[in-house]
């Protein structure tokens, strides 16, 4: 109750107060539909947005993996990823193999042989991936030998010639 007497001393005169009432009573809100109700809905949508984005990304990834591998099994997708990622590591060795194959081909085979029992699966997987590349490697390696074969062919030709 103590502030009230001092309130009366502090403010406007009664005439001014009456004018203020009249003028502010004339001020009417333009639009009274609550805006906070729509904000609530937006807030819920914003909360769900990260989950929706994550689900969309996952489904896109699954679809692309399915299209790539042709299998709906995620294990196959992971195997495919391993086979796609692994060859760059394995590819330098076959390029070095042809020069080494001339000198160390007998020793290299025994060194690989002990690895097979320790890790059967990883050692088996590079072999099919390397299988296309050795197809390339025999060509340069065969080129010196092909000379002998071609010489053999030539011999056969010459033989043919000789026969003829």
């Amino acid at each position: 109750m103590s502030p009230l007497p001092s309130d009366d001393e502090q403010g406007l005169s009664p005439e001014l107060e009456e004018r203020l009432r009249r003028q502010l009573d004339r001020v009417q809100p333009l639009h009274t539909s609550p805006r906070y109700a729509t904000v609530r809905k937006r807030a819920i949508a914003l909360r769900l947005a990260p989950a929706a984005i994550a689900v969309t990304l996952l489904s896109l990834l699954a679809l692309s993996a399915y299209a790539e591998t042709g299998s709906p099994n995620p294990v196959v997708w992971s195997q495919r990823v391993v086979t796609v990622v692994a060859p760059p590591k394995a590819s330098p060795t076959p390029t070095q193999v042809p020069p080494a194959s001339h000198h160390e081909s007998p020793t290299a085979r025994p060194s690989k042989a002990p690895e097979h029992p320790e890790s059967p699966q990883p050692s088996e997987r590079p072999e099919p991936t390397e299988s296309p590349e050795p197809r390339e490697s025999p060509e340069p390696s065969e080129s010196p030998e092909a000379g002998s074969e071609s010489s053999g062919g030539s011999t056969s030709d010459s033989g043919g010639d000789g026969r003829s």
Binding site: L24, V27, P29, L30, H31, P34, R35, Y36, V39, R40
Partner: peptide, 27 residues
């Protein structure tokens, strides 16, 4: 709204401020 309208001359701005205040209060 009337309090804000006594501070701001623009009725649209007064309405915006009042609505924003209620939105903030609601949150």
């Amino acid at each position: 709204y009337r309090t804000v309208a006594a501070i701001l001359a623009d009725p649209a701005a007064a309405e915006d401020c009042t609505q924003d205040a209620f939105t903030q209060a609601f949150q």
